[in-house]
Amino acid sequence: MSLAISTPGATQQNWLEKLGAGHIILGTALVLYPLVASDFFLTQIGGYSLIFGMLGLSLMLLAGYGGMVSLAQITVAGISAYAIAILGNNNSNVLGFGWPWWLAVPFAVLAAALASALIGWISVRTEGIYTIMITLAIATATYYFAQQNYAIFNGHSGYAGIRAPAFWGISWRDAKPFYYLCLGLAVLSYAAVLYGSRSTFGMTLQAIRDNPRRMRALGYHVTAHKVFAWLLAGVIAGLAGVLLVWFNGRVSPGTIGVDAAIDVLIIAVIGGIRHPIGPFLGALVVVLMQTFAIDIVGAERFNTLIGMVFLVIVFVSPDGILGLWGRIKPHLAQEALRPGP
C-alpha cells in the first residue's frame, strides 16, 4: 500500500489517466450512439455486434490468454439461451416453468458456465488443432442432439415467444433500453477480462499458454487453471446467450449450428485476440458485412464478399484489425490502445 497522501482531485485524475484517452472516447461514443442511431442501427447493428463481441470475447479469453481455440462458445451461449426459454416463458407448449427473469438468468448463466467447464475439462488434455477438433465435435453433437430431442429441446423448431423482461419501469425489449443493456454487460465483461489479464490468475494462464511444462515445475496445477478459464469464458458466453435469446425472441438448433460456431471464430480472428477489444471490432465488421453485403453484391454473392474481406484482413495482418492498428499506430505517433500483455 502506497503511503503517499493524495487529494481527491489527484485520485480522480489518476483514474482518468488509468482509463486512457482511447477508452474515454470510445465509451462516450457508445453511450451517445442512441442519439444519432435509428432503432435498426441500435439493435441490429449495435446490440447484435455487442452480443457477438461478447461471444468473441469469451473465445479471446481462452485463445488469446490460454492458447485454447474453442469452436464451442456458441454451444455454451445456446445452453443459456435454451435455459432461459425452458425456465421462463415461451409459447411452444413443451417446457416452460415460468420462472421470473431474476431467477432464470442466474441459473442459465450458471448452467452455461458449468457446461463450459465440462467442455474444457474434456478438451484440455488436447492441444492446438486437436482442441479445435474436439470442441467442433462437441458443438456438432449438441446441435444434432438439440435437433433430434423433442422432450427438452423441442427438436427442429426449438422455442419461440421469449421476451426480454420489463422491470424498473423499463421495457428492456425496446431498442434503446436493449442497446444499453447489451452495452452494460459488454462493458462489464470487457473490463473484467482486461482487469483479469493482469491478475495472478491471468498471468498464470498466459504463462501456461507459453510453457505448461515450466509452470508444472513451478508448482502450478495446469489443468485446474485451464478448466477455470473455461468456466469464466462460460459466464461471458452465457450472458451473451441470454441477450441473444432476448434479442431473437426464439432459440432453435439453427442458433447453435456450425455456421454460428465458425462466425464466432471469424469474429475473433478478424478482430484480433491479443486484446479484449479485438472481438468487439471483429463483431462490428462481421455484423456490418452480414447486414449490408447483400445490398452491395446481391443475394447470390454476399458470402463471397464476406469471405474475401476475411481473407484480405488475415492476409494483410495475421493479428486481425488489432494487428493493423499496431502497425499504423507508430506512424500516427499517439497514445491509444495498449498492446495486450
Partner: peptide, 24 residues
C-alpha cells in the same frame, strides 16, 4: 523454458507465487 508473452518481473513473480499458498 520461459514465458515469452510475459514481462521479466511477472515471470519471476509467478515463480515466487508457485511455491506459496496463494497460487490462485
Amino acid at each position: 523454458q520461459l514465458f515469452k508473452g510475459l514481462s521479466v518481473l511477472d515471470s519471476i513473480f509467478l515463480a515466487c507465487r508457485g511455491v506459496s499458498r496463494r497460487r490462485f
